[in-house]
Simulated assay, not measured.
Amino acid sequence: MVGTNLKAETMSLMEKRTAVEAEMNAIIHRLSQPGGPGLSGNLIDAEGFPRSDIDILHVRAERRRLAELRNDHQEISEKINENIQLLHSARLSNVSSCVKDSGNDADSNQNSSLVNADASAFPSNNIQRDSPVSMDVDLIISKPFALIDEITDASPAAEDGLQLGDQIVKFGKVEAGENLLERLASEGRSNLGQAVPVVIMRQGAVINLTVTPRTWQGRGLLGCHFRIL
């Protein structure tokens, strides 16, 4: 019963996170329009006066709301990860108990079936699920190390399929560890113009993509910002 309730709570959190990401994307899109103020652009003109081409109060409200949503997104993601770890701990404990209890009574074929059935419940990172929100959340086994908290329209990251809120499990050769920002930057520079395999977690689903770091009209080689988790 506890596991069922925890799973239901996690599914609800995933749906809530999806709604938060949609609102964040909408705000970012509005602020990043051509000639717009951007996510952190200056609101005064070259002479030091408030810009007359934008609604400054509205822009400030949008930026403030975006900051609130980012905090909400982080809290929800942390709770989801906490629930997933609890679900996995419960699953592994149950499997271990089943194997131990059935060891003396079941024949080798039955034991083999039990092990194979459990192994099939833990997919590799190469599996992409089509309905992430409806997935069985205790199948997630990878731990992300970074979150995309900013992404620019028409940037290499956006064009190659990355989205705001994606959690990075693996970027090229970079996995969880130390000096992650430096390693991510180095991986991007060393693969300029080359496709880099990326494993992400999106709404609880593990997805494989390829991203090509390249020069474009904006900043950096990807046009997104990684926040280390």
Rank of each mutant, 00 (worst) to 15 (best):
E62P: 09
S89I: 02
P123S: 10
H73G: 09
V99L: 09
K79V: 12
S93D: 12
E68Y: 04
C98K: 13
C98G: 14
S77L: 00
A117H: 08
D118Q: 03
H88Q: 05
H88Y: 00
N116M: 03
A61N: 02
S93L: 04
I80M: 06
E68I: 02
R63G: 02
R63I: 04
S108E: 10
S102C: 11
Q85T: 11
D72A: 03
R91M: 01
Q110T: 14
N104Y: 09
S96Q: 12
R64G: 14
D105C: 14
N94W: 01
N111H: 08
N71Y: 05
A61K: 01
G103M: 14
L69C: 02
V99Q: 07
R91T: 05
L86K: 05
E78Y: 05
S97D: 14
A61F: 00
L66S: 00
H73F: 11
R64E: 15
S113N: 14
L86W: 01
R63N: 03
S102V: 06
S102K: 08
A117E: 10
S120K: 15
H73N: 15
Q85G: 09
I80R: 10
R63D: 00
E75H: 12
H88S: 03
D72T: 09
I76H: 05
S112M: 01
R63T: 00
A106C: 12
N83W: 00
A119E: 11
I76Y: 04
A90H: 06
G103S: 13
D118V: 00
D72Q: 09
L92P: 14
N81G: 00
N104P: 09
R91K: 09
Q110F: 13
R70L: 13
N109S: 13
C98R: 14
A106D: 04
A106P: 04
I80E: 11
I76C: 01
G103C: 14
S96W: 02
R91V: 00
N116L: 03
E78D: 12
E82H: 08
L87M: 11
A90I: 03
Q110H: 13
V115D: 08
R70F: 06
S89Y: 06
A61Q: 02
H73T: 13
N109H: 12
Q110G: 14
C98H: 15
E78P: 06
E62C: 09
N104C: 08
N104M: 12
L69H: 01
K79C: 05
D118G: 01
L87W: 02
N116G: 08
L86E: 05
N109I: 10
Q85W: 03
L66K: 01
Q74N: 08
K100C: 04
N81T: 10
G103N: 14
N94G: 07
D107F: 10
N81H: 06
E75V: 15
A117T: 04
S89C: 09
